[in-house]
Nucleic acid binder design. Structure first.
Lengths: 106, 106
DNA sequence: GGAATATATCAATATATCTTGATGTTTAAT
DNA sequence: ATTAAACATCAAGATATATTGATATATTCC
């Protein structure tokens, strides 16, 4: 039950659904890219990314100073169904501003 | 997005998952039966039942003074997947105390 | 019609969650 | 070594959600 609620509650927020959709579309991104693209402050993003990770949807990989967040793979059946449902949502997605390539300076 | 969040948030509560599981197991029940079986007060149940209905998981049918709540059928693919996931949870289910047959007197 | 049952809703309080700004911690560049 | 970037975490305030008891609305039975 605990795990189920943690999984569900990780989706129970528009910000997190947006983040998930954005990472699903663009693949792994660092926090500073998400910051730029989604126009959110860092602490807010970090928090939501952690919740999505604890919910089993994301994984993190350290690359130097960067934390690269991406959709965990493989997702189990249920989480994949959730992701499929999110893919069908009509969400206004911002453009990707990938500054990390040129050296991100927030 | 709005509908998705409403669906997800309706599952984001242990009480509601329990109610859903209980109705899934026993079929349609009135509020007073749920009250007896789950040991909850009426206002609390009414609230959660409404949220599950608004989340698209339950339907209500009036039968005289009683409101019979049951799993909505057919469920769409995503809600069905959610229900399947809930069926797999290890939940301690109370016994059914169906007093409505003999005339429920709360 | 009047009393009692079943349910819904409201108001107040308690609890949890989200947002922001501040503060740590680690890594990279010089 | 120092400085700065990238990220995590914490504390405080704001917002949302849950619980309870009280009240309102049907409906049934007499």
């Amino acid at each position: 039950m605990e795990t189920f609620i943690r999984t569900i509650s990780s989706l129970n927020d528009e910000t997190r659904v947006l983040i998930l959709r954005f990472l699903d579309l663009h693949g792994g991104l660092c926090v500073c890219d998400l910051q730029q693209s989604l126009g959110m402050i860092q602490s807010r993003l970090s928090r939501h990314l952690k919740i999505l990770k604890d919910g089993g949807f994301l994984k993190v990989e350290r690359a130097g100073a960067w934390s690269i967040y991406s959709i965990r793979s493989p997702l189990d059946r249920f989480r994949l169904e959730c992701l499929e449902e999110i893919r069908c949502l009509d969400i206004e997605l911002p453009l990707l501003k990938k500054l990390s390539d040129k050296g991100c300076k927030i």
